[in-house]
């Protein structure tokens, strides 16, 4: 199991996040995707013991996350957990995500801060927007969605292949990404997780950006439901040269297939 931490200028928190994950999940591989940070987030993550991927410039949350998932697929991880580098996601909840992942056999397990309310306070406007997108996404996929903007999730290999494909609405991979995932045949479940308010810095949905985000997301959902997407294992695998890899993982959930392009033994053993 690999824990992916996308980080953009999170020097104040990312080290503690990496250490927290190592403490909670000893033996789990931690990968920090340094999204062109200018504050030394990458070096701090490496110091804290994480593997680091350094993007040459800031690409945004979606592409950074996708980089981490490409890494996970290529190195043969059976599952990946995505956890923010700003300290909002409690590493203690990774266990809950993975337990549900094993139990339900779902492709995507989303950690929701609202499923058991009372642990997270957000401004009224944001809560209203989250509820609105939750209802909208819920209506589209036919199940209850309480936290459509949550970036705290566990992904199986089928879900990872979706995340590296062109099908992913990469600019704002939230509610629209969930709807697309459902439409390509992935199974999604939510579990309650603990989230902390941000200790440092500003959220990517603050102020005017939140307003822009609202309409971008609305439009993205609109085009998402107008598309006819299908997840084809052969076509959507990140490495089309390696058709055998896609073949091997189809329908066999949790079976790690070591990519052919990596020397035997070089791939870390799949945990959890």
């Amino acid at each position: 199991m690999l824990v992916i931490v996308p980080a953009y200028n999170e020097a104040a928190t990312v080290g503690a996040v990496v250490q927290g994950i190592a403490r909670e999940r000893p033996g789990a591989a931690v990968l920090v995707v340094d999204d062109g940070s200018t504050d030394g987030s990458g070096a701090l993550s490496a110091e804290a013991g994480a593997e680091v991927l350094t993007l040459p410039f800031n690409t945004g949350y979606g592409p950074a996350l996708q980089t981490g998932i490409k890494y996970a697929l290529r190195r043969g991880f059976a599952a990946a957990v995505v956890c923010d580098g700003d300290g909002q996601h409690d590493p203690g909840s990774i266990g809950a995500l993975l337990a549900e992942f094993e139990r339900s056999g779902a492709d995507i397990v989303v950690g929701s801060r609202y499923l058991e309310t009372g642990t997270f306070e957000a401004p009224a406007l944001k809560r209203a927007a989250v509820r609105f997108f939750g209802l909208l996404a819920g209506a589209c996929i036919g199940q209850r969605v309480t936290d459509p903007t949550s970036g705290f999730k566990a992904l199986g290999r089928r879900a990872m292949r979706y995340y590296v494909s062109d099908l992913l609405p990469i600019s704002f991979p939230d509610a629209d990404a969930m709807i697309t995932a459902h439409r390509v045949g992935l199974r999604i479940v939510e579990v309650p997780v603990k989230m902390h308010p941000r200790a440092e810095g500003r959220s990517m949905h603050d102020g005017l950006k939140g307003f822009v985000y609202f309409f971008n997301m609305l439009f993205s959902i609109l085009v998402t439901v107008m598309r006819k997407d299908r997840l084809d294992p052969e076509v959507t695998d990140d490495d089309p040269r390696d058709a055998a890899k896609a073949e091997g993982v189809r329908g066999v959930r949790g079976a790690a297939v070591p990519p052919a392009d990596i020397r035997p033994g070089a791939a870390p053993p799949a945990q959890d």
Binding site: L53, L55, P63, T67, K70, Y71
Partner: peptide
């Protein structure tokens, strides 16, 4: 975006 991702992965 694809090139940037590939750069990071190859560097690693």
């Amino acid at each position: 975006k694809d090139l940037a991702q590939e750069t990071a992965l190859l560097q690693n």
